[in-house]
């Protein structure tokens, strides 16, 4: 019962905040609604026993990515752009397409059939704590993707610096 109340609260806020975020005229307000949404998503992750990921969600999304957005918004002088029309002229078309895809997604969820269960049940995770469990899986089975991810981040750092740097005279 109490689980369902919390689930409905979190999902209602997540949906409402994401709608608010994409409809704001002032970009900074959109970013702030996103921030609230990230907090509620982190709360939802706690319900799913993913405490490490929920902390990472707040540190990376709220603490780094959204700050980056705010930073860029502050550096740019957006007074002209926010006066322009908010949506494209044929936005009902976009609504139609995305709600059509939503219908397909929702219908397909009804027939979803889950496969065999893995080894990391709640009791097992509780025994070694969640961070240790994620670390074990990450470094034992997914070591190569992890290295690739670090390479992706390196490329992103170099790319961002090269792109945003002014020409050296």
């Amino acid at each position: 019962m109490i689980n369902q109340i919390f689930f409905f609260y979190f999902s209602a806020v997540i949906v409402a905040m994401s709608v608010m975020a994409i409809t704001r005229r002032q970009v900074l307000h959109g970013v702030l609604y996103m921030l609230l949404m990230f907090f509620h998503i982190a709360g939802l992750y706690l319900f799913l026993n993913a405490e490490f990921i929920s902390a990472v969600q707040i540190i990376v999304y709220a603490g780094a990515i959204m700050v980056l957005f705010l930073f860029v918004i502050m550096l740019l002088n957006l007074r002209e752009d926010i006066r322009k029309k908010q949506f494209i002229a044929v936005w009902p078309m976009g609504l139609l397409v995305s709600s059509g895809i939503l219908m397909v997604v929702l219908m397909s969820m009804l027939t979803v059939r889950t496969g065999t269960k893995g080894v990391w049940g709640i009791a097992q995770i509780e025994r070694v704590t969640e961070t240790v469990a994620v670390g074990t899986v990450l470094y034992m089975q997914y070591l190569f993707p992890f290295e690739v991810a670090s390479l992706v981040l390196l490329v992103a750092i170099i790319g961002a610096i090269v792109l945003a740097k002014r020409k050296v005279k």
Partner: peptide, 16 residues
């Protein structure tokens, strides 16, 4: 699914 489609709607219709 709902959150994904909201994001898609925003991407398709906003010009900023």
């Amino acid at each position: 699914g709902v959150v994904f489609c909201i994001g898609m709607f925003g991407f398709v219709t906003r010009r900023n």
